[in-house]
Each structure stands twice: as C-alpha cells, then as structure tokens.
C-alpha cells in the first residue's frame, strides 16, 4: 500500500495544495514580474508626461487620455484604422479558412498537397513574407502589376495610395495567417463523426443543408475560438505595418499597436504611449469578456 492512502486525509489535501502551488509557481512568478507588474506600471506611466530623451517625467493626471480622445485627430484615425483592419481581415480570413478546410478536410492525396501549400506562409517568418510582398506590390516593376497589365489592367500604386495600402496589408496578412485557421478547422471537421452526415444524407439532405444544420453548429466552438484569436491577432499586427508601409501613406495604415511603438520608441512620448497601451488593454479585455459571455450564452 502506498503512503498516500495510509496518511490522514487532511495531510493529503495539504500536500496536494502544496504540489499545486509548486507546479504553478515558476510560471506564475515570471508572469507576475514580466506581465502583471508592467501592466500596473503602464497605468501609472499613462498619468505622466515623460520624455525618454531628457529622461524627465512629471505627473499630469488624465491629460494623456484627454489628449488622445479629444485633442488628437490622429488617435481617432488610428482607432478607425485598427477597426477597419480587423473588419477587413477577420471575415476574409475566417471565410477563406473555412472554405479551404471544407475542401481539404478529407485525407486524399491532393488535399495533403494543398494543405501544405496554404500552410507554408504560416511557418514563414512574417518579416520575410512582408519583405517579399513589398517587392511584389511595387508600382510598375512589381510582379502583381506586371501580371495585371497582361490582362490589360493598370494596377494602382498599392502601398502608396491610402486605400490600396490598407487593402494590401490586409490581403498579405490574410495569406500569411489563414493556414493556421484552416488547420484548426480541419482538425475540428475531422472530429465530427461520419455517421451524422451520413444519416442526414440518407434522409435526403443536400450538401448545403448538411453544412447548415450539422457541420456549422458543430463547428461553433471552434469558430468562436478562431474568431477571438484572429480578432486579437489583427489588433496586435506590427511587423507587417512596420515593414510594408510604416503606417503611411497619410497615416492610412497607422494601427494602434504600431502607433504605440512609434509614440513610445520613435517620438519618445512615454506617457502618451502608455495611455495608448492602456486603451489597447481595455479594448482587448472587453473582447475577452465578450467572448466569455458568448460562450456562456451558448451553453
């Protein structure tokens, strides 16, 4: 007989608690130091005016927030850009991911090949992907416009016209990330028992009906997770913007994450950048809570 069963039950419980805390403590300690601490600090910083170059700071209260929300037009542009980016990227990404997953979920030979193709950008460094696409999207000598000119279309100057720049960044970002969502959908599709769809087919349901009544509802949890991951991923996009447009032209692709970096580490407005970081925090916290509510509502 083992010691665990011989010992009194109180000790057992205490022991379990001790092991529990020991098991979580490494990651929890680091998390407190490198995440929670800085998170508290960023709230504090956001109430100061702080110049990184001269290293002087003083307390200004909510001045930075007032600045962002009322005095600074750029902030609202940035917020709108971030939302446009998310609104463009998320549906496109998810529809494409779902479509590809439905087409490629069965393990036939061709499917495996295409899965490899669509997943390849995911394992490619984002920097590499952005660099290559910056080349492909050059105005006249870029491959995209050269291809378009073959069919008689005079392509725009993709990365240097405000609307096209946003579209280009969204498009290349979708290409980069859609593969992971596709794989997650494929995994979910493969876990749907064959009998469900077979039974429906025997009852005379067509493909669309099967998808609507069986597949789609069963995919709902996956869809929710993918949506949250994709929305949050779209709010933290940094490297694509940094490398492809630098936030331009005319601030058309200046999104929140990039704006924080620029204000904090380029113009050294540490206080203002911290206020922006707090706003990003609140935005994402709201999304996380919304997801939890949605999840609970479904149950």
């Amino acid at each position: 007989m083992s010691a665990a069963i011989k010992g009194p039950s109180l000790t057992l419980k205490a022991r379990e608690a001790i092991s529990g805390w020991l098991f979580v403590s490494p990651i929890l300690t680091g998390f407190m130091i490198f995440f929670v601490g800085p998170l508290i600090a960023v709230f504090y910083y956001s109430t100061t005016e702080w110049n990184l170059l001269s290293q002087q700071s003083h307390f200004v209260g909510i001045e930075n927030y007032v600045d962002a929300l009322t005095r600074n037009d750029t902030f609202w542009d940035v917020l709108v850009n971030s939302l446009v980016f998310a609104a463009g990227l998320v549906p496109l990404n998810m529809l494409l991911a779902l479509g590809l997953a439905l087409a490629l979920s069965r393990s036939v030979r061709g499917a495996v090949f295409f899965r490899t193709v669509f997943f390849a950008p995911v394992i490619t460094s984002a920097v590499a992907w952005a660099i290559i696409w910056t080349f492909l999207l050059q105005h006249e000598s870029g491959a995209v416009n050269r291809a378009l000119s073959v069919i008689g279309i005079n392509g725009p100057n993709w990365l240097h016209e405000p609307h096209w720049a946003m579209a280009s960044v969204i498009f290349t970002r979708v290409l980069k990330t859609v593969g992971l969502n596709m794989i997650l959908y494929i995994a979910a599709l493969q876990s749907i028992p064959r009998d469900y769809t077979e039974a429906a087919r025997l009852e005379g349901a067509n493909g669309w009906e099967i998808f609507r009544r069986i597949t789609w509802p069963l995919l709902a949890p996956t869809t929710l997770v993918i949506m949250v991951i994709t929305v949050v991923g779209s709010l933290k996009v940094f490297d694509h913007i940094y490398l492809m447009t630098g936030g331009g032209p005319q601030n058309a692709t200046l999104v929140l994450a990039f704006y924080i970096y620029e204000q904090g580490f380029k113009f050294f407005n540490t206080g203002y950048a911290s206020a922006l970081a707090v706003i990003l925090f609140v935005l994402i916290l709201a999304l996380t809570i919304l997801q939890t509510i949605l999840k609970a509502a479904r149950k």
Binding site: Q138, H139, S141, N157
Partner: peptide
C-alpha cells in the same frame, strides 16, 4: 513621368 515615383525603384 520622369521622376521615380513613390514605391518605385
């Protein structure tokens, strides 16, 4: 059209 425009090499 003589000056290299933005986004062109």
């Amino acid at each position: 059209g003589s000056a290299v425009p933005p986004g062109e090499q």
